[in-house]
């Protein structure tokens, strides 16, 4: 993952303009904003709505439908543990429970110190090297509790 910038309405306007020209621009625009700032700032909603001639409700509805879009800044590091059936067959349930216990937060939450955001993901397509997780945007397979811990350690 690249470095993210602090929220800036001016920069947001530029990002929106870069992606507004395609057919059906809303998802590409939201992805680009999240990549730029790490999350979708509440002030982004009216900016996007105005630029794309949508209602704020439309934009809000799309942001809340898709689990990728964050409305809070993520932790410095991100961990997503796969919960799919193939990973379950190789101890994925235990790994998912371990990750939540070890970090002390449920899926979808960030540790109180702002260090790690823990998410669940339903399949990374690494089903033949299960169980798998995505740590800071990098794929890892054949994991167990110890291997996941060493990846999450700074």
């Amino acid at each position: 993952m690249g470095a993210v910038r602090a929220w800036s309405p001016e920069r947001a306007g530029e990002v929106i303009a870069e992606h507004a020209g395609v057919r059906g621009p809303l998802l590409p625009v939201l992805h680009a904003l999240q990549e730029e700032f790490g999350y979708l700032h509440p002030d982004a909603v009216p900016l996007v709505a105005k630029a794309l001639n949508l209602s704020r409700a439309d934009v809000h509805g799309v942001i809340t439908f898709y689990s990728d879009f964050r409305t809070q800044p993520p932790g410095r590091r991100t961990v997503a543990v796969c919960r799919g059936e193939a990973c379950q067959s190789r101890g994925g349930r235990d790994l998912a429970a371990h990750a939540q216990q070890r970090l002390g937060v449920p899926f979808g939450a960030t540790t109180p110190d702002g260090e790690v955001t823990l998410d669940q993901v339903f399949c990374l397509g690494l089903c033949s090297v299960a169980p798998a997780a995505l740590v800071d945007g990098r794929v890892h397979g054949r994991l167990d509790a110890g291997a996941l811990d060493s990846l999450v350690q700074p």
Binding site: E85, A86, C127, S128
Partner: peptide, 11 residues
């Protein structure tokens, strides 16, 4: 959008 667990051929 190959979301089924256990599938990875598209990827």
């Amino acid at each position: 959008d190959e979301g089924d667990s256990g599938t990875f051929a598209d990827r």
